Computed example of a mutant assay.
Amino acid sequence: MIKMQDLRKDFTVRVKAGRFRRTKRVVPAVDGISLRIDRGEMVGYIGPNGAGKSTTLKMLTGVLMPSSGEVSVCGLAPVPQRTRLALRIGVVFGQRSQLWWDLPLRESFGLLRHIYRVPAEEHAARLRRCRALLDLDEFMDTPVRQLSLGQRMRGELTAALLHGPEVLFLDEPTIGLDVVSKQAVRAFLADLGASGDVTLVLTTHDLADIERLCERLVVIDHGRVVHDGTIEALHARYGSRRSLVADLERPLPLDFELPGAILTTVEAGRHRATFALESASAGAAVAALVSAVGVRDLSLLEPDIEDVVARLYTSTDVP
């Protein structure tokens, strides 16, 4: 559905070169990205501010012309065939609206049906599904300007899907939402992805969105891909470790060592201990603790993806 080969976008900026003089400098925003995304995939596309995420999305949707390289979406060249492409993609930008500010949500949806020339039956069927999954009925007749941010974002998602796009681009779809609204949006997108009907590309700073929705994660930094694979592969590559937190029956001996694990913290008179598991399995670690000091309670904590990504950005292993 999406192909990028050596895709590049440069911007020319003017910088001071003295008191009265400025010179031009070329800044690469996207620096030779090559990716292939297949039909039905849900891909998380993340990176720090200025990494090139939004620039990539703008080239994929035909808003920006690449400086060089090749790109196709749904078999179309985004800029030369932008009108045809618009009928086959949906776009949601968290801080921009495609709804009419002074019109009720229902009328915005009606206008979009005419703009995209969607048959009435197809439009009604898709709208029924969105109304049910996103709980739209209570504010369908409310002007968009009176909606809360969470309500408006649910409306934006519906608007992007009413014409039946093959690819959905989401740029920060949960930015600023409260916990309840985030859960509603994530549940809807998870259901959408499970159907396999839509290819989804998600850029976000909220890594919980990625963990909840995407099996494949693409990380970019300074316009280049530094990781393309599963979240589990990212954890493995950058040495993230699970943690075992144990409430012990008696204090740990001062010289206690747990094979395959590192003691990271001890609390409350050494009755609670946290171990970072390296080579040991959780079962082996628990068995060793029970044998040595006894265990009252324990929990196994999975590594935090935010810590892993932060480690990636500072790693000397990044290309």
Rank of each mutant, 00 (worst) to 15 (best):
D6M: 13
D6N: 15
D6C: 08
D6Q: 15
D6F: 12
D6P: 13
L7S: 10
L7W: 11
R8Q: 13
R8K: 15
K9V: 12
K9T: 08
K9F: 11
K9Q: 12
D10R: 14
V13M: 12
R14T: 15
R14D: 01
R14S: 13
R14N: 11
V15L: 07
V15P: 11
V15K: 15
V15H: 15
V15W: 06
K16I: 00
K16D: 07
K16M: 10
K16V: 09
A17E: 15
A17M: 14
G18V: 05
G18K: 09
R19K: 14
R19P: 11
R19N: 08
F20N: 03
R21V: 04
R22A: 03
R22T: 13
R22K: 13
T23D: 06
T23N: 07
K24E: 13
K24A: 13
K24W: 10
R25Q: 13
R25P: 01
V27F: 11
V27Q: 08
V27Y: 05
V30H: 10
V30G: 06
D31R: 15
D31S: 12
G32Y: 03
G32A: 07
G32C: 09
I33N: 07
I33R: 10
I33A: 00
S34A: 03
S34H: 11
S34I: 08
L35P: 04
L35R: 12
R36V: 00
I37W: 03
D38M: 02
R39I: 06
R39Y: 08
R39V: 06
R39D: 01
G40L: 05
G40T: 10
G40I: 09
E41W: 11
E41N: 10
M42C: 12
V43H: 07
V43D: 01
G44D: 01
G44L: 04
G44V: 00
G44F: 03
